[in-house]
């Protein structure tokens, strides 16, 4: 090779890259200027945290093919670890506490991933279920974790980074957005790397992967650790930026399922899928209920409204999965291609 290896031909900016840039301009530039507190607090911040959790689970389940039902447990580990670190080591800057919280979650993921060396499919899912229940039990039983507060409720410290306060709805949104953007870039680098290829190789054919020289056990544990790291950070965002007061019950099995559904609806094995799925699962219900309230008026029974909203959401989920089992990401791809053909 004569050519300088660093001067590799870079791929031309495609429509996807341009769309992404436009999205970032929108998220960083336009939304913070025009958005309302409700938009930040009730929609965007939880959307970002859940999308990040979905992203983390997608690395494990979508890319590496390892089914996990313990996502909420890893969120809880990340949140409670970051809380304890900032409480007990007050000199620690907040980003460092959140980062270390993610690393504690990664460690938990590593341990939880050990059964994956022997189990797969539903059996693995059941073993991650054990993690889910163990963490819930530990949070309720070990008072030290929640600084001996009754029923394990913790109140997160204010979001202050390098003297700059992010402690208002817009600031919390921007903080979450920055964390999510950074981790998404890292996840994208990971799945595009040879290691990311190995994850998919293990998912698609473990025997062949082993024979071409993929270190199967190490790669599976890596998938668990990285995935749990991302989910742990998402948990910290959930606690520090969104709710600010969290209890263990917020990280129950329902949450794990919610994150799994986000990944399935959004599209397994795609990074966009987590965001699309989070939009569908977390934001759409709120929009539906607002729509319902607006259409039917305040006098309508709120319980009935909620039920109707759930039914509509369920019907939408079924419709999407019938139309495109590979999720919203594939649906979007197809629509994009059709649009491109029409334009051409």
């Amino acid at each position: 090779m004569d050519a300088l290896p660093l001067a590799a031909p870079r791929p031309r900016p495609s429509a996807g890259v341009l769309g992404l840039a436009a999205l970032l301009v929108l998220a960083y530039g336009i939304v913070p200027l025009t958005g309302t507190s409700y938009l930040f607090e009730a929609l965007l911040t939880p959307f970002l945290a859940l999308a990040l959790a979905g992203l983390g689970l997608n690395l494990l389940t979508g890319y590496a093919g390892l089914l996990s039902l313990g996502s909420a447990a890893f969120m809880a580990v990340g949140a409670y670890a970051a809380f304890n670190l900032s409480l007990r080591l007050p000199f620690l800057p907040l980003p460092a506490a959140i980062l270390l919280g993610g690393l504690v979650a990664a460690l938990a993921g590593l341990v939880a991933g050990l059964p994956a060396l022997r189990l797969r499919g539903f059996y693995l899912a059941v073993s991650t279920l054990a993690v889910q229940f163990f963490v819930a039990w530990a949070l309720n039983r070990i008072g030290w974790i929640s600084n001996d507060s009754p029923s394990g409720i913790i109140t997160a410290p204010g979001l202050v980074v390098a003297g700059l306060s992010f402690d208002d709805p817009r600031g919390r949104y921007l903080f979450s957005l920055s964390v999510v953007t950074l981790l998404t870039v890292l996840a994208w680098r990971l799945v595009a790397s040879p290691t990311g290829r190995n994850l998919v190789a293990i998912r698609d054919n473990e025997t062949a992967a082993r024979l071409v020289g993929v270190k199967v056990a190490r790669t599976k544990l890596l998938a668990f650790a990285v995935s749990s790291f991302v989910i742990g950070i998402a948990g910290a965002l959930w606690a520090f930026a969104y709710l600010r007061t969290v209890e263990p019950a917020g990280f129950n099995l329902d949450r794990s399922f919610q994150i799994l559904f986000i990944v399935i609806i959004g599209g397994l094995g795609t990074l966009r899928g987590a965001f699309l799925g989070a939009g569908f699962i977390a934001v759409l219900p709120l929009l539906l209920s607002r729509l319902g309230a607006a259409v039917l008026g305040d006098g309508f029974d709120s319980g009935t409204l909620e039920m109707v909203q759930r039914m509509v959401l369920g019907a939408l989920i079924v419709a999407v999965l019938i139309r495109e089992p590979a999720g919203l990401a594939a649906l979007l791809d197809r629509a994009g291609r059709r649009l491109g053909r029409r334009a051409a």
Partner: peptide, 23 residues
Amino acid sequence: LFAGLSVRDNVLSGLAAARRAGL
């Protein structure tokens, strides 16, 4: 084969054992 990977990535995966760079 690794059905979800592109043809190029399938061929590249044949070099998994020759990879030295860390994550």
